[in-house]
Lab assay of single mutants.
Amino acid sequence: TTEYTFTDDEEARRAIEELKKRGLTFRYEKHGTTWRVRVD
């Protein structure tokens, strides 16, 4: 499991789109302004 942290909404959304394109399994949660994206 790899975890990424983003504080920029645009950056987080781009990363999420990219992961979807690659067909990877991931989860994300947003805490205030911080996004945590975990890739299995």
Rank of each mutant, 00 (worst) to 15 (best):
V37W: 01
Y28E: 03
V39E: 02
F26W: 03
E11S: 14
G23F: 03
K20L: 12
H31R: 09
T25G: 06
R27H: 14
A12N: 01
E17N: 10
T5R: 06
G32K: 03
E29R: 06
D40I: 15
H31A: 07
I16F: 05
A15I: 11
L24P: 01
W35S: 02
H31V: 14
T34C: 07
T5C: 12
W35N: 02
R38A: 11
K30S: 03
R22I: 08
R13N: 07
V39K: 00
R13M: 14
R13A: 09
R27V: 14
K30N: 04
R13P: 01
E17D: 10
E29K: 07
L24E: 05
E18Y: 12
T7A: 06
T1M: 12
T5K: 05
V39Q: 02
F26Q: 00
G32Q: 04
K21W: 06
G32W: 02
K20F: 10
D9M: 07
T5V: 14
R38E: 14
L24Q: 06
A15D: 01
E3T: 13
E3I: 14
E11Y: 04
K20W: 07
A12H: 02
Y4P: 01
T5L: 14
I16K: 01
Y28R: 01
T1L: 11
W35F: 04
T25C: 12
R14W: 08
E10H: 10
E18N: 09
E3Q: 06
E17P: 00
A12D: 00
E29H: 08
G32A: 04
E29M: 07
R22P: 01
E11L: 08
W35P: 00
K30I: 09
E17Y: 10
G23K: 04
T2E: 08
T2S: 07
T2D: 05
R36A: 05
A15L: 14
Y28T: 09
E11K: 07
R36V: 15
W35V: 06
V39A: 02
D8E: 05
D40L: 15
E18H: 09
R36D: 04
E10D: 12
Y28K: 03
T33K: 10
E29F: 13
E29C: 13
E3L: 13
T2W: 15
T25Q: 11
D8G: 05
R38G: 03
K30F: 05
T5H: 07
R27T: 15
T2G: 05
K20H: 08
V39S: 02
R36M: 12
D40Q: 12
G23C: 03
R27K: 11
R22D: 05
E11I: 07
R22Q: 13
E11N: 06
F26T: 03
E11F: 04
F26H: 03
A15M: 15
D40M: 14
T1E: 10
T1C: 13
D40V: 14
K20N: 07
L19K: 00
D9F: 13
Y4C: 14
T2V: 14
T1Y: 15
E3R: 04
G23H: 04
K21G: 06
K30G: 01
E3P: 02
I16M: 13
E10K: 09
K30E: 02
R36I: 15
F6Y: 10
K30Y: 05
E18W: 14
E18I: 11
Y28W: 13
L19W: 10
T33Y: 06
V37K: 00
D8Q: 04
G23D: 03
T25S: 13
D9T: 05
T5W: 15
A12T: 03
T1R: 09
E17I: 09
R27A: 12
T2Q: 11
H31K: 11
V37N: 00
R14G: 05
F26A: 04
E11D: 10
Y4M: 08
F26I: 12
L24V: 13
T25Y: 10
K21F: 06
F26V: 15
D40T: 13
R14A: 12
L19F: 14
T5M: 10
E17L: 11
T2P: 04
E18T: 08
E29Q: 07
Y4L: 11
Y4E: 02
V39G: 01
E18P: 00
Y4N: 02
A15W: 15
V37E: 01
Y28P: 02
R38H: 14
L19D: 00
V39W: 04
R36P: 01
T25R: 12
R14Y: 07
R38L: 15
E3F: 14
K20Y: 10
K21D: 06
Y4A: 02
I16S: 01
A15V: 13
R38V: 15
R38M: 15
H31T: 13
R36N: 07
T33N: 14
W35R: 01
R14T: 08
I16T: 02
H31Y: 11
E29I: 10
R22C: 08
K30P: 01
T2A: 08
E11W: 05
L24N: 04
R22Y: 07
V37I: 15
K20M: 12
T34Y: 10
T33W: 04
R38K: 12
T2N: 07
E18Q: 09
E3M: 12
G32P: 01
R22S: 11
W35A: 02
R14F: 07
A15N: 04
V37T: 00
R14M: 10
R36T: 15
E29L: 06
K20D: 05
W35M: 03
R13S: 06
K21R: 13
K20I: 14
T34D: 04
T5A: 05
K21H: 06
R36Y: 15
G32N: 04
F26M: 04
T7H: 12
K20Q: 11
T2I: 14
K30T: 04
E18G: 07
A12W: 06
E11T: 13
K20P: 00
D8I: 04
T33H: 12
Y4K: 03
I16A: 02
T33E: 13
K20C: 11
D8W: 03
E10W: 09
R36F: 15
E11V: 08
W35I: 13
E10S: 08
E29A: 07
F6T: 02
D8H: 05
T34F: 11
F6P: 00
K30H: 07
T25M: 10
E3K: 03
W35T: 06
G23R: 04
R22L: 14
G23T: 02
T2C: 14
K21T: 08
T7G: 05
K20V: 12
R22A: 13
R27I: 13
D40C: 15
Y4S: 02
R38F: 15
A12V: 06
E29N: 05
W35Y: 05
R13H: 11
A12P: 01
L19A: 04
F26K: 00
F6C: 05
R14E: 08
T33I: 09
G23I: 01
F6D: 00
H31W: 08
R22N: 09
R27G: 06
E3Y: 14
T25A: 10
R22G: 05
Y28D: 02
A15P: 00
T34E: 12
L24Y: 13
I16W: 02
V37A: 00
L24T: 05
L19G: 01
V37S: 00
W35G: 01
D9I: 11
R14I: 10
T34Q: 07
E17Q: 10
E18D: 12
A15H: 08
I16G: 02
R27W: 15
T5D: 04
R36C: 12
R36L: 15
R27D: 08
Y4V: 04
A15C: 15
A15K: 10
R22K: 12
G23V: 01
E18F: 10
D8F: 04
T2L: 13
Y4H: 03
W35K: 01
V39M: 04
Y4R: 02
D9V: 10
T1P: 12
E10M: 10
F6V: 01
G32T: 02
G32L: 04
E29W: 15
T7F: 13
T7N: 11
I16R: 01
R38T: 15
E11P: 03
L19H: 01
F6S: 00
Y4W: 13
V39D: 01
L19E: 00
T34K: 05
K21I: 08
R22E: 06
D8R: 05
E11M: 09
R22T: 08
T33Q: 11
I16H: 00
T7V: 07
I16Y: 02
E18R: 06
K21Q: 08
R36Q: 07
T7M: 09
V39I: 11
E17T: 09
R13F: 13
